[in-house]
Design a protein around this nucleic acid. Structure first.
Lengths: 111, 111
DNA sequence: TTAATATATTATAATATTGTTATATTAAAT
DNA sequence: ATTTAATATAACAATATTATAATATATTAA
């Protein structure tokens, strides 16, 4: 596989989880499957919009589905997705702390 | 911090690395700093576009810069960014393998 | 001081992503 | 067979992202 293809695929999977609503979905599915109705309640996302986001996650293989009667249950397909999610949380926090420190240094005037 | 803010920030940092050209940049900076000119050569991205992507990475704190004479050297600010990058590579590969397997099952007709 | 090199910025057109509204599908219950 | 509840899809407007072309800035060299 050529590097460009790799970068494209990588960016694609990364983009799939790069949306606040989809982050909320994944966070709610962290350790349990959940029906769409439950997800609506938990996330507050509108039905149509949630369904669209679930469709994106599903089409990329990030979540799996299971029908039980009238409900469809969504779950995360691969635990590494959550590992990546959590690692990015750490990165985010550390970047945020650095920014805070920079601002503080600027105010206090020390380096 | 409210969950919505968290998801927004998380998605934001995630979006920052969700672009094939920025992936290429990060991959090239993996274990060395590099000047813009070097990055142009290595990645094949146009000067203006590369500069824009570097600007995005810089503004989000993902890379640091150092001027040396006429050159500006870029480097990755936090090793966890690469850890996250690599973990997402694994996720990508595993998702890809699953998809391959599914296609194969469909062709062969076994489950 | 001017020229050359390295990098950044701005404007813009093309494309992609997002959320909303309205409508369709699917399965279960009556 | 209808009705109801759960979920999906389509159409669309608003916004964001992207790459290109043109121009500007900054540092060194001549």
């Amino acid at each position: 596989m050529y590097k460009k293809d790799f970068y494209n695929m990588h960016a694609d999977i990364c983009k799939t989880i790069s949306n606040p609503n989809r982050q909320a979905i994944l966070d709610n599915l962290r350790d349990t499957e959940m029906s769409v109705t439950e997800l609506i309640k938990k996330t507050g996302i509108s039905q149509a919009n949630l369904s669209q986001h679930l469709s994106i996650l599903r089409s990329k293989g990030v979540v799996n589905t299971r029908r039980d009667g009238n409900n469809i249950f969504y779950s995360i397909s691969n635990p590494k997705i959550l590992q990546a999610y959590d690692l990015l949380s750490e990165v985010m926090q550390e970047l945020f702390q650095n920014k805070q420190r920079t601002v503080n240094d600027a105010i206090v005037g020390n380096k």
